[in-house]
Amino acid sequence: MHIADGVLPTKVALACYALSAGCLSLSLRKTRAQDLPKVAVMTSAFFVASLVHVPLGPTSVHLLLPGLVGILLGWSAFLAVFLGLLLQCLLFQFGGLTALGANALMMGLPAWLSGAFFTRFRNSPDRVRILAGAMASGTAVAVAACGLAMLLALGGEDFFGVAKIALAAHVPVVVVEALVTASVLAFVGRVKPELITQGAWKAEWR
């Protein structure tokens, strides 16, 4: 879920912009200049993938994919997340322009986290790797949900209830996300293992 305009206090929104600008420049510096177009192409794939809805009982959830972005893109993940959210905001209004910094932090940091966690398991046996990926991805969504709740709660005592509800609403997403990630990793592991073992174009943690 993305935060819309006007939910966050302006101070918080600006602070998040500043923080994510820092992360962004770090992510940019860690990505080789010649890989930037590749990150862009890959990000559009993630962008399209995040439009997929997974049916869940009477409703459906759309995938957030911070875990997978981190697993496949390593350091470039924050860059990808930021650009993906920016484009979502420009095209769809998913998440407001003024809240972009907050949304990017909320998704980008968990993406980094899951990438850093998964990188130890890149060359593990298939089952372990899939399990690690599922855990990384589920955790990433959980962390993102906590981030969302925290940001909402920063709006004052009035928003505590909304924060709790938002957190609870992400529980099924965590499960779906973990399962889908496991299944994606199983598929990619068979079809193009080098994408997992080295990350996209060797986006290892340098």
């Binding site: 794939a45 997929v52 995938l63 199983a186």
Partner: peptide, 9 residues
Amino acid sequence: LGNFLGMLF
């Protein structure tokens, strides 16, 4: 769906 997304990636 995992196959589908994997294919896309």
